[in-house]
Design a protein around this nucleic acid. Structure first.
Lengths: 229, 229
DNA sequence: CTTAAAATATGATATTTATCAGGTTTTTAA
DNA sequence: TTAAAAACCTGATAAATATCATATTTTAAG
């Protein structure tokens, strides 16, 4: 198994603040696994007892509402850590993590990381920083969900996806989501997501062929996200 | 000015993990202030550079949406800390904090707390814990906002308010909010909040006289929050 | 290659919610 | 105490969104 010390991925997250010795220890007790597209990395209600470092692939973080509908909270990509909350509280996870495409992850047990948290303040501050950023994102997300229309939210989602995952040479967003995935991110019915995507296409804000989406007029989408429509 | 060492409020938050010496230092550099009802404790876009400890009163945390509408994110009460995020990032606050009634707060400058974070792992873990809990709350809030109807959200809000602030001898919730406040928590128009409160009253789920609200049938409200209506 | 299943699409309709408009009551300040 | 302002309330209507029904296209499996 590859060693954390040599893993380039750690440069993208808090693990970069670990010393060489700490990394060696972490490396010794980590495990790796592959999660196939559509399978769970972890499930709501289970204890995860450690953090996952995403080496490759994209992971959808979601939660069931009491209404029985699924809401996607976040998309996690290569280089991100997930499961930080399990370090702190002993409660089972309140979230699902599902592979959107084949996922390569490392798992570091809780005790190991806690040991580092207690001894390495720089590492701890970095983890605090991550949580703080997530919290800010989440708060902003609440405001959007509460105050924006479905159309605004979909426009915003498209912009954010392009930002986060980039495009290929042809300008197509480097992430293929089903209409249902879009609906679950935006918090709407699948039919509504489909209709709005078609509307955006008709208005030449974007074009798509199946799941391949290319944004043609980002400014226009931005306007819509801000409520000018 | 009163001393942190003798302040009973700190028992309710992470500050309880500070040692006597640390508390003496904190106490020496803290400042106190009163914020009158309706005034800002701090404003979106300003740098706060420290944390506030709420000694008395209730504070509304909110954010303007791009649509120009206000969304209340959280209600903070006696014993809570607020502003933890400013410890970590240097960005200005993305939130407003407004006094719902007269507020008595202490302010502890950032540098002082960071010093303690670096030297006291128990304190740090407690702050991490707070952030993690907030994040969980926020995530749940996102799901509610995205997936529940206004009626469900209002019912849930009422239950949560009673939980958090309790009731007086007459069973009236210990917090007086305007209909507009309710609308901003639930994320709806003021008229809609009014209509639904009236509907709940008609169904004898609650009774109210002005801003004094008494829940009569908590199970019934719970049912509605879960989507049975 | 063929067929069944899943995903996408679109129309019709019902429901939810916002908006506007006009009241009444309560609170605030002079 | 009284006038003005703010908060509250209700109805009518419009807009947004969900739901249901059904057709088409795409994908997956045999």
């Amino acid at each position: 198994m590859s060693k954390c010390q040599q893993c380039i991925i750690r440069q993208f997250n808090s693990l970069k603040h670990l010393s060489k010795e700490e990394l060696v220890r972490v490396s010794a007790c980590k495990t790796s696994k592959i999660v196939k597209k559509g399978e769970y990395l972890f499930e709501e209600g289970t204890r995860i007892n450690g953090i996952f470092c995403i080496k490759d692939g994209i992971c959808k973080v979601s939660k069931m509402s009491e209404n029985g509908r699924n809401q996607t909270i976040n998309l996690i990509k290569k280089g991100d850590l997930i499961g930080e909350r399990s370090l702190i509280s002993d409660e089972p996870s309140n979230l699902n993590a599902i592979a959107l495409n084949d996922l390569e992850v490392c798992f570091i047990p809780k005790e190991e990381i806690i040991r580092d948290l207690k001894s390495n303040p720089t590492f701890t501050m970095s983890v605090l920083n991550d949580l703080a950023k997530s919290l800010k994102n989440s708060d902003n997300f609440v405001v959007d969900m509460a105050q924006k229309t479905v159309k605004q939210r979909l426009a915003e989602t498209l912009i954010k996806l392009e930002d986060k995952f980039g495009t290929n040479d042809a300008g197509i967003i480097n992430l293929q989501l089903s209409r249902d995935d879009f609906a679950n991110i935006v918090g709407t019915a699948t039919e509504s997501a489909i209709r709005l995507l078609s509307e955006f296409k008709k208005k030449e804000l974007l074009e798509f062929k199946g799941k391949e989406i290319k944004i043609l007029n980002p400014k226009g989408l931005e306007k819509i996200a801000q409520g000018f429509s």
